[in-house]
């Protein structure tokens, strides 16, 4: 049973880590921009998936805020809406502070279906209709055609660095265990061994009459011994 609970916990942690990475790492879509707008939003339980109130225009006490949006149609014809918010300085670590400039660029790149201008939108985050959350656009780059091959070099580098850090942490814990914990446990084990040896000697002594009597006298001085 414990093994299954352990597996469940590990699986949950792994899914959580993968979700956080998938949410935070940059992804790219090829879209054409059909419009930009600023929308007043009443953020409720979806506020977690928007920037914090300290960023950008701020939030009124009742959770109301103006948020810039970039409305696009993807190369496959489906709509995609990005929010355009500063990220602030902590998390996610994009340090984006140019959302107003990005909005100006987005409006500059607006095009029609008849005469499309294709744009690679670098973004992070998820679009969810259920929770009304939007990916945050962080960069726009115009490309001549929607058939561009985008190799995620940056993500590969980041994941490699993270894997290296994970390996380092594992090595550090192993070293810590080998050099600090195990010697300590050995010392405790030795102490237990000494105690057992003493108990064994007392037991052997207790087999004779004189030994029992002297043990009884000793018991006046120290704690009772079994």
């Amino acid at each position: 049973m414990w093994r299954w609970i352990r597996r469940g916990v590990l699986l949950t942690l792994a899914l959580l880590a993968i979700s956080i990475l998938h949410y935070t790492l940059p992804q790219r879509d090829v879209v054409r921009i059909v419009g930009v707008n600023t929308q007043r939003m009443d953020l409720g339980e979806n506020a977690f998936f928007f920037s914090g109130p300290a960023v950008g225009s701020g939030t009124s006490p009742d959770g109301t805020r103006d948020i810039m949006f970039i409305n696009t149609i993807m190369a496959n014809g489906r709509p995609m809406v990005y929010r355009n918010e500063d990220t602030g300085w902590i998390w996610p670590p994009y340090f984006k502070i140019n959302s107003f400039n990005l909005q100006a660029r987005a409006s500059d790149l607006i095009s029609t279906e008849a005469n499309p201008r294709w744009v690679v939108v670098t973004h992070y985050g998820w679009r969810s209709e259920f929770f009304t959350i939007f990916p945050n656009a962080i960069r726009l780059r115009e490309v001549p055609s929607p058939d561009v091959t985008l190799i995620p070099w940056l993500n590969m580098t980041i994941l490699a660095v993270l894997a290296g850090l994970g390996f380092l942490v594992v090595r550090m814990l192993a070293q810590f265990r080998e050099r600090m914990v195990d010697p300590l446990l050995d010392a405790v084990g030795d102490a237990i061994g000494r105690g057992q040896a003493r108990a064994e000697a007392a037991r052997r002594e207790a087999r004779t009459l004189t030994g029992r009597i002297s043990a009884w006298f000793r018991s006046w001085r120290g704690p009772p011994r079994r």
């Binding site: 300085w89 902590i90 090595r171």
Partner: peptide
Amino acid sequence: MIPLLRGLLVMLAVLTVFYVAVGIYAASL
């Protein structure tokens, strides 16, 4: 400006923890 300073402080705190940990590890090696 305050959020920037706060972000820097958080980064410095995290990096200091890492620095101390790696320092102990390297010395142990």
